[in-house]
Design a protein around this nucleic acid. Structure first.
Lengths: 287, 287
DNA sequence: TCAAAAACGTAGTCAAACTACAAGTATTTG
DNA sequence: CAAATACTTGTAGTTTGACTACGTTTTTGA
């Protein structure tokens, strides 16, 4: 039985804050300001702390679309487990390192949660089929997206076909220009607007390759791709917040690699196991 | 007010399964088998479904160390929000793509949650101070850890000092051999037993460099480091489960980079903002 | 200023969580 | 082997907390 993943509560709270009644807003502020208290408190306690009556707390819950206070509390607990994303908590100079690391982890985890909810399994399925049908895999990305491409290249044994992930934009273009039916391209750009990356997608596709595009949103890049993969993360608001998109991208690569491996069958997996055992020998012996 | 992060409930459940009473175990099995039902159910409902009486459900909760049923439910909800790690759910060939991607995301998020709980802020603090005091930053890692090193190298503008992350083990050793006081090394190996990586740490330290070690556990590598950073993830049990350790490593790099940036002061951040704006121009115009 | 409607709280009800106790079952010891 | 003790589990009862019906107050618009 799959768990339905609702939109993070605290974000939603900010959105509807304006539409709430005055005394309901008091409750909302309490929840936003001290969510961990509310999570463990009773309805009477919340009413007391917010300076309103119990039915108001109840009305607050139903206004948000919950059936009652209990349901609301469960949902709040779920949100807190993920952590509070940096878009709400803000990272500042006066933060202690403990706070800072918690905030960054929270931000990352919330962001991956969002990616998890937005990812379209149908497109993933198509991407997996495309890789299985292909004879070679080429990756292209710049900056943080280059990291994703390199990581995928390391997973060549899982994909079962030759992989290349040139870092140089010129080489990326060359690979695209030499593409042919049977080539599979994974083209990565979070913004989806990096000129040279879009060109790689466009060129490869014109040569008959199957092009999988990974970007953070609808974008020019995806228009030139056969299979668009939207990996939605929490937007990086300011310079403090690190680029989370690359992490979500890596997870998507994990999913693709795992799915391809599973479909390649047991004898392929046997070879993998063998390889892994050999590798741990290599690690210890030299290199 | 910081949120205290308890150990994931379902893992704990497996551990204490043996110590439970017979009828309590029935409840435990229901929880393990259908957690999302229990999360929304009432105590009477759980008792009914498990085929026991209500007080038994209550006793089950207290046996696990909770004050009552409600507390237990909240905690269960938190665990489910993170997702069920692959160590418990097992990835199989018959999984649909939707299930597979959910499981991999769940596994990743649970794993990051664990890293978040185990990370020692004191060592992070020491690492940040070391980087701030250093005149150059060198990174070394192989395989998946090389990805982390490359990612850190990309963050050179944040660290504010020259960064290098050679991929070749020989070059890594050369960098270590040329180290001097003022050099800072970040040496990465999930197992902490890769021969050449341990050697890099050892050599660099002998030359007076400050060596920061990142590994998944107590390990030979960390013995040769000034500042040990343990990044605990959920162990990769079989070939299906992807290597999550590299993601946690990337988050740790994020934390280090962000902390260093914040300590470098506002004028450094102004330059960064300027750089970021310029970069988005570059993306659009050519390259 | 008055009427109508919306907002909010008071008081009450019902169900769910928790507790005390007794019955039954296993275990140990004389 | 029997008796007693300790342990396990369910029954019945109590209390507390969630939810509801209704009435009072406040606000809004003519």
């Amino acid at each position: 039985m799959p768990l339905d993943r609702k939109a993070p509560l605290l974000e939603h709270l900010n959105d509807v804050m304006g539409t709430l009644r005055n005394s309901e807003r008091k409750v909302a502020q309490l929840v936003a300001g001290n969510p961990s208290y509310v999570m463990n408190a009773t309805m009477a306690g919340v009413a007391e702390a917010a300076g309103v009556s119990e039915p108001t707390v109840m009305r607050f819950c139903t206004s948000l679309g919950f059936l009652g206070f209990q349901q609301f509390k469960i949902s709040l607990a779920q949100t807190l487990a993920l952590g509070i994303p940096a878009t709400l908590s803000t990272i500042g100079r006066e933060d202690s390192l403990k706070e800072l690391s918690t905030k960054i982890f929270d931000h990352t985890i919330s962001s991956l949660d969002r990616a998890r909810r937005f990812l379209d399994p149908i497109q993933i399925d198509r991407a997996v089929s495309a890789i299985l049908a292909g004879s070679s895999l080429h990756l292209a990305g710049l900056g943080a997206s280059a990291i994703i491409a390199l990581d995928a290249e390391q997973k060549e044994p899982l994909f079962g076909i030759p992989c290349s992930a040139p870092v140089d934009p010129h080489q990326q273009y060359m690979a695209a220009a030499m593409a042919h039916p049977g080539s599979v391209f994974i083209v990565i750009s979070n913004t989806g607007r990096t000129r040279s990356i879009v060109q790689v997608a466009q060129t490869a596709r014109a040569k008959g390759a199957t092009v999988i595009g990974i970007s953070g949103d609808e974008s020019p890049l995806l228009k030139h791709c056969d299979i668009p993969l939207i990996v939605k993360t929490i937007e990086d608001t300011d310079i403090y917040t690190p680029t989370v998109s690359r992490l979500a991208g890596l997870v998507v690569i994990d999913i693709l690699a795992t799915a391809v491996t599973l479909r390649l069958g047991p004898e392929h997996m046997d070879r993998l196991t063998e390889m892994k055992e050999g590798l741990s020998q290599v690690r210890r012996d030299h290199a």
